Amino acid sequence: MEVRTIKVFTTVDNINLHTQVVDMSMTYGQQFGPTYLDGADVTKIKPHNSHEGKTFYVLPNDDTLRVEAFEYYHTTDPSFLGRYMSALNHTKKWKYPQVNGLTSIKWADNNCYLATALLTLQQIELKFNPPALQDAYYRARAGEAANFCALILAYCNKTVGELGDVRETMSYLFQHANLDSCKRVLNVVCKTCGQQQTTLKGVEAVMYMGTLSYEQFKKGVQIPCTCGKQATKYLVQQESPFVMMSAPPAQYELKHGTFTCASEYTGNYQCGHYKHITSKETLYCIDGALLTKSSEYKGPITDVFYKENSYTTTIK
């Protein structure tokens, strides 16, 4: 009895394709271990004539594949690729409408935090270190965002349907971005203890939790000093293409032309909904596939993004 075979390709990165001759009487799992086709788990399936010449994702289970996976995804987590594939199996079914010149995501599976993050990423200057993220990001900007969303979920250790947080998501993504040249110098002034300067680099240099107003941050924000008295913390120097200011959701007025974009969060910790506000020729609110415009805006804002380049204080 002759062994019926077909020729397929296996890959971990969709760049390096490895030619395989597979036995049609055995499952993919018996031949390769966990195997995925377009995100779908085909591990328990036997090869079919229609699979001839198709590319299958496999887990990096030998040295060659491990090197290829690390170079593309910059992670050695053995569960990463499987999590990416199972997320992709959902995100490829989502709709990605162009809204006001940006790629958004039609609401499904509690994905409003991903839509808000995706919209924000198209408006701030950011370059990702893992080629996987950078490639998928370019495709997302062009309207094909399924891979990018699935990668975000995998890097953030999230599953489809789980509630997510924009600030946490951005923080994970910033860790995989090139923020080497970003720098922030802060000064804390206390009447009792004097003053202390701190220099922050990388992710810490672009994120701040405690106030939404970048102007206020430049002037000074009140913080408790270690001595128990009130101290003032203010920005001395900022070198970065953008800054992200966050605070627990509270009524906040966004003035046209003073910011790049913002995240609105309605609801409580267990259950809520994100919308995205962007400042173009007027203010726009993007909620999944829905767009509304207004000249002014007041609502429960939790993150505001500002364009920056270089700032030095005039406070002496």
Rank of each mutant, 00 (worst) to 15 (best):
S86M: 10
L212Y: 01
Q175F: 05
M85P: 04
K201H: 13
P248C: 09
R83L: 10
C225R: 01
C285P: 00
G210N: 04
T278G: 08
E52M: 11
Y214I: 12
Q251R: 08
Y306C: 00
I152Q: 02
N187L: 12
A154H: 02
S25H: 10
T116Y: 02
T211N: 09
V22M: 11
Y214N: 02
P78H: 10
Y72P: 05
G288W: 02
E204C: 07
L59T: 13
D303E: 02
V67Q: 13
N14S: 12
S310C: 09
Y57W: 11
D165E: 15
G33L: 04
T64M: 12
L254W: 05
I277M: 02
K95R: 10
P130G: 02
S240Y: 02
Q196H: 13
L290P: 00
M244K: 06
M24L: 14
A108P: 03
G143W: 02
P34G: 09
H90C: 12
E68V: 04
M245H: 00
L290I: 15
N147F: 06
R83F: 05
Y113D: 02
I124S: 02
A132D: 03
A177Q: 02
I45V: 13
Y72K: 09
K92P: 05
K275N: 04
K127I: 09
T312E: 11
Q175R: 11
D303C: 03
C190S: 01
P300G: 06
S263P: 01
A250K: 11
T120S: 10
G267A: 11
K293W: 10
H176A: 05
D63S: 09
A115R: 02
G288V: 00
N16I: 09
N309K: 12
N147H: 14
T159V: 10
S279R: 02
S246V: 03
A142N: 14
V243I: 10
L283T: 07
I45D: 15
T120D: 04
S25P: 06
P34E: 15
A145G: 11
N100T: 08
V67P: 07
C193G: 02
K280V: 09
L173H: 04
A262C: 01
V236G: 01
L290F: 13
A145P: 10
K95A: 13
A231Y: 01
A145S: 04
F242R: 01
C225I: 00
C225P: 01
R83G: 05
K158W: 05
Q123I: 05
G29Q: 08
T192W: 07
N61Y: 14
G53V: 07
Y172A: 10
K92S: 10
H176T: 04
A231G: 04
P224K: 14
Y265M: 00
I223Y: 11
D287R: 00
K158Q: 05
L81Q: 07
E296N: 10
F70W: 10
V160Y: 01
K127W: 06
Y208N: 08
P78Q: 09
D62L: 07
F80V: 04
K218R: 07
T5I: 10
T55A: 12
P34V: 13
F128V: 02
S50C: 11
Y138T: 15
S295A: 14
S50E: 14
P60Q: 06
L163G: 12
T226M: 10
S263F: 01
D165C: 15
S79T: 15
T169M: 07
S104G: 07
P300V: 15
K255H: 11
E264I: 14
G220Q: 03
H176E: 06
Q237D: 07
A132W: 05
T35W: 05
A142D: 14
V166F: 12
I152C: 07
G39Q: 09
K316H: 15
P47N: 05
P78D: 14
S25N: 14
V99S: 08
T64G: 12
W94A: 01
N16W: 06
Q195Y: 10
K183G: 04
S213N: 10
V8I: 12
F305C: 01
Y284R: 00
Y214V: 10
E168Y: 07
V304I: 11
Q237W: 08
A142S: 13
Y297C: 06
V3D: 14
L102A: 07
R83E: 03
T91S: 05
Y274N: 04
H90T: 11
V185P: 02
A247R: 03
T76I: 14
E308I: 11
Y137F: 14
S104H: 04
E71I: 07
Y265F: 15
G257T: 04
V304M: 03
I223S: 13
T64L: 11
R83T: 06
V21P: 11
G257Y: 01
N309H: 12
H256Q: 13
F9N: 13
P131S: 03
F9W: 11
W94Q: 04
C182I: 02
A177D: 00
C190Q: 02
N157D: 11
Y208A: 11
V221T: 08
N89Y: 13
I277H: 01
V203H: 11
T5Q: 13
T27R: 10
G164S: 04
Y284T: 12
T169W: 00
S104Q: 05
H51E: 11
P241W: 02
D63W: 06
G164N: 05
D62V: 07
S279G: 09
D13W: 02
V58F: 05
I223L: 09
A140D: 03
A250L: 08
C112G: 02
D303R: 00
S240C: 05
G299I: 02
G257D: 12
M26C: 14
L283G: 01
G288F: 01
K298T: 10
A108W: 02
Y208I: 11
S295Y: 12
Q237H: 15
G39W: 07
P34M: 10
L179R: 01
S171Q: 10
V12L: 07
V12W: 07
G202V: 01
V58Q: 08
D303K: 00
G288C: 01
Y96D: 03
G101T: 05
G288D: 02
V243E: 01
V236Q: 07
I286E: 00
V206P: 01
G82F: 13
C149K: 01
S86F: 07
E162H: 04
P97T: 12
V243A: 01
P78S: 09
S86A: 15
G228N: 03
P131K: 08
M24T: 12
K158D: 05
S246I: 00
A205Q: 00
Y73I: 02
N309Q: 15
N89W: 08
K316M: 15
Q195M: 15
N16G: 07
E204Q: 14
Y274P: 00
E204N: 09
E52Y: 12
T313A: 15
V58E: 05
Q237L: 14
N89T: 12
N89S: 12
E144M: 08
D13M: 05
L118S: 05
K218Y: 02
